[in-house]
Amino acid sequence: MTLAIETRGLNYHFGQQQVVNELSLQVPKGSIYGFLGPNGAGKTTTIKILLNLLQAPREKVFIFGKDLAEHRIESLRRLGSLVEQPAIYGHMSGMENLHNRCLLLGISKARAAEMLALVGLTDAARKKAGKYSLGMKQRLGIALALLSDPELLLLDEPTNGLDPNGIIEIRNLLIRLATERGKTILVSSHLLAEIERTATHVGIINKGKLLFQGTIADLQQLSQPVVAIDTDDPVRAQTLLHAAGYPAETEGAQIRIPFQTPADHAQANKLLVEAGIAVHALQPLRKDLEHLFLDITKNN
């Protein structure tokens, strides 16, 4: 497996506080790698290290197999990035921001219009970027990241501030870039559902530690959805379900069984109703990030 990004036991401190702890990322070339974690987990710090904005020691960060500390320019030439809030010049228009970046990257200005069209900002091309909404700034940030047609994209919460349509567009764009143009994309988020829809690989970080790394299928194994059942007699319902082979667990007044198929939980419902238990509600639930973290931490 060729790796676009690799970190080997990476550590980083802000003063006394350790923000990245023995992090060993492995981002396969051509993948969309979802970098998942709650706010303050160390995602942005890691991305900044990958861009050499925060300096890591030698032999710790590799971009396309080359040590970033020794091949900074060469590595950055293959990278496009969007870190935190998009860094744009507020006194310049969207188009001027892109033209300025074209100047710095030595690429044709014609590409600027193309990128604006790609992110849907053609109509606002002449408007001062400082007057853009958060979503528009985010789109411009994505256009800036894509401008040099980089092989590797590092996007820090790129859907922040976007409306649902914008989120879908960006999601589709990422998928297109990876599948049609063979780009490698590392996209950070604190939303599991967002990552599940786009990523092929996932890394979960919390308190600077990588808790999980694998394919999306591996993650789906971990984030097994459940069916929450409300009944008038949870104790008897659990006993009945157990007897029928369901690994039922109680949580408060609810019974939870793993979600298999709709037919399967219809069968569980039938079992309870036939036993004279009133079933008030049956609701499929996906584990939220917090629960997933708890599971992963428990497994680790």
Partner: peptide, 9 residues
């Protein structure tokens, strides 16, 4: 924008 300038090649 320091971060942009320093993340360019």
């Amino acid at each position: 924008t320091w971060k942009t300038l320093f993340s360019l090649p």
